[in-house]
């Protein structure tokens, strides 16, 4: 390789994604934003922008309900907590929301479990296609030391979002797919053998797989998902006295490090 490949894009970026012809028109994946896409609701348009195609009204509505299902205005939830901290110190609204969103790409909630769960179901599907057994696939993952994302929930045993999501999937007639069934079968297996519960990441990922989203598309789609829960947490902390959001007293830092010592010693 060499720098020569950079010369092609130094002054020219050819794209099929879109372009804003300012004062004239805006093209998104070949369609005029204002004339052809103007009646889409925002999530539908977001999906169109990510996928480069219209996924259809029902898919857009179901994916919109993913976001609805996880819009929790509770400041104990970590991204919300960060946004509330930003509010209590009077950071700007955008900085506060971005700070919360930036930590939603976490390992124990949010984007990584979602991506890993979707990937797990696609790989499980391939294993089944090759004549394998689902329990065997789960055991192989476990014996490789891999977390089975979507099963178990750190702070509770049940997930109130699951019945909501299954109802929505039925409502939009997207509940009959192969991967949702795999997600439910994996839960049956893990529950019977290990007592694992299922969380909504498994249901979301199963539905996303049935819709056909790639892991990257799913990650991009989910990135702003927590914003509706963040906003009220920011406002709540912003409207109270400065620094009053769960202040921490000195003695509540429990020190477990080396004993006091002299620098000169």
């Amino acid at each position: 390789m060499s720098h020569k490949r950079l010369l092609d894009t130094e002054k020219r970026w050819v794209t099929r994604k879109g372009k804003a012809y300012l004062s004239d028109r805006v093209i998104v994946h070949g369609k005029d934003l204002h004339k052809e896409l103007g009646d889409y609701d925002w999530i539908h348009l977001y999906l169109y922008a990510i996928l480069g195609r219209d996924p259809g009204e029902n898919v857009a509505k179901l994916l919109s309900s993913f976001w609805v299902s996880t819009s929790y205005p509770d400041a104990s939830i970590w991204p919300n907590h960060v946004t509330a901290l930003a509010g209590t110190v009077r950071a700007t609204a955008s900085l506060s929301l971005m700070a919360g969103l930036s930590i939603s790409e976490a390992s124990i909630y949010g984007r990584r479990p979602e991506v890993r769960a979707l990937d797990f179901f696609y790989r499980a599907g391939k294993h089944l296609d090759a004549g394998g057994d689902l329990g065997e696939f789960v055991e192989n993952e476990k014996s490789a030391g891999r977390t089975i994302y979507g099963y178990g929930r750190p702070l509770s045993r049940t997930d109130e979002r699951i019945p909501f999501m299954l109802d929505k999937a039925r409502e939009f007639e997207l509940d009959g797919g192969r991967y949702l069934q795999i997600a439910l079968n994996v839960h049956s297996y893990l529950y019977e053998k290990y007592g694992y519960s299922m969380n909504v990441a498994a249901v979301h990922a199963g539905l996303a797989a049935d819709i056909g989203l790639s892991c990257q598309e799913y990650q991009i789609f989910g990135s702003p998902a927590f914003v509706t829960g963040l906003a009220p947490c920011y406002q709540d902390a912003r409207d109270r006295p400065e620094g009053s959001f769960f202040p921490v007293r000195c003695s509540n830092i429990v020190y477990e490090g080396p004993a006091k010592r002299n620098w000169s010693a």
């Binding site: 003695s251 509540n252 020190y255 490090g257």
Partner: peptide, 17 residues
């Protein structure tokens, strides 16, 4: 009186005024 909301650290110790 301390609450149960505590952060644990091997780095930092503070003594209050």
């Amino acid at each position: 009186m301390a609450t149960e909301y505590q952060y644990h650290s091997n780095i930092w110790l503070e003594e209050p005024e």
